[in-house]
Design a protein around this nucleic acid. Structure first.
Lengths: 216, 216
DNA sequence: CAAATAATAAAACAAACGTTCAATTAATTC
DNA sequence: GAATTAATTGAACGTTTGTTTTATTATTTG
């Protein structure tokens, strides 16, 4: 009826986060009750309020840290080269790897935005926009240097992100396709979609995706 | 305190459906209360149960009819030609037009699947799979006749559908782009993505999307 | 115009919700 | 080993939830 033997705040908080991501991804934020979450962690509902003042604070924390993780992953993976095709390939690889690795958290961040207060929604959307801006910059550079052939960079960026993020909807590790195969296919599709080509100087044009695939 | 003047079952039911789609799309199925829905319609909560036995029945009805509408739209739009490029273009046009036109209903059908019972979920997913199968068939035909160049038709079909459906996330009518412009861009991106080309008989290859754009 | 039917309101139900509070015990500090 | 702090329980709070029941009124039918 009180503190339990072996209880540890840090471990409990981590367990709460993990269980929350899983439950919200499976049942939805509104459908997950604090009691259900507590039971999953092996604790009473009241104990949750030691770590998160409200249910919405919990949701917001999960989302913010997911977005921070995504930005950080891209910072770490961003190549130094100016070559738009290579930068685009890095973006695609990072995006797909991150989203497959954190399927549940991505589901939460994409599906539960409407449960945030206005200001918190704005905050998350700002982070998302900043991340997407990176892709638009790569596409614009590619257009300006003539290696990409794109109608509308903004529209193309959205289409690409939707396409890539969609991987979490149908992809299941250990089934027909491996992560590497999926990544290679998406790289190929991306490079074609943006009309990527490298001028070999002989007037002959080759699709970059043929190279990209080899490195996937 | 009882039947109101001018009350009409058919009109009320239609108003309930419409309000439900809007509210569920905005706030989510779990977050929408029956009282909130009733208030939107201008009626007491109990009146809703004249038309839908439970809240979940209401959700299921909305989803089923949405999927039926999507299939019916494709049946009507499906071209008689065997040409895979033309059939693919028709699929893309129909998909985008339908989803832009029914943004809210699509949101409901895509986001609230987890609130369905197992058997009803299965039923909706069956309809969705049947619809997606049409796209896979087009892609496969294109590969077999040599007009498409595709890694994996299943994966490509999913990527295309995610990309196209994603339009409802960012597109708002009356803003920067018109429906026709968006459709043209998506057609172009689709044709490139599947490596569409028509053999002109001279050994020269041209991308089909250059033609498709003209018809958008 | 009376009888039957359709459409609603109003009130109530038990269950579940997020959250708070006080009490209690484990671990840590001095 | 006593005092302090950390972690949790159990019970309770007021709301809100989906749904049912009963009564009441508008409309349609004969």
């Amino acid at each position: 009826m009180a503190r339990t033997t072996g209880s540890d705040g840090e471990k409990t908080e981590a367990a709460v986060r993990e269980a929350a991501v899983s439950l919200i991804a499976r049942f939805g934020y509104e459908a997950m009750s604090m009691r259900q979450l507590a039971a999953e962690v092996g604790v009473q509902a009241a104990a949750l309020y030691r770590y998160f003042p409200t249910k919405e604070d919990l949701l917001f924390t999960l989302m913010r840290e997911h977005m921070e993780g995504l930005s950080a992953a891209w910072e770490a993976a961003r190549p130094t080269t100016a070559d738009p095709a290579r930068r685009l390939a890095a973006y695609v690889r990072n995006h797909i790897a991150f989203h497959i690795e954190r399927r549940h958290a991505t589901h939460v961040s994409n599906m539960e935005l409407r449960s945030l207060s206005h200001e918190r929604l704005t905050q998350i959307l700002r982070m998302r926009t900043a991340y997407e801006k990176e892709l638009r910059a790569v596409l614009r550079d590619g257009v300006e240097t003539g290696v990409f052939d794109i109608d509308d960079t903004g529209l193309t960026a959205m289409a690409l992100i939707q396409m890539m993020t969609g991987v979490i909807v149908w992809f299941r590790p250990g089934e027909r396709l491996s992560v590497a195969e999926v990544t290679a296919s998406y790289l190929s599709m991306t490079m074609r979609l943006v009309g990527a080509r490298i001028d070999t100087g002989t007037g002959e044009e080759r699709h970059v995706h043929e190279h990209a695939q080899l490195r996937a």
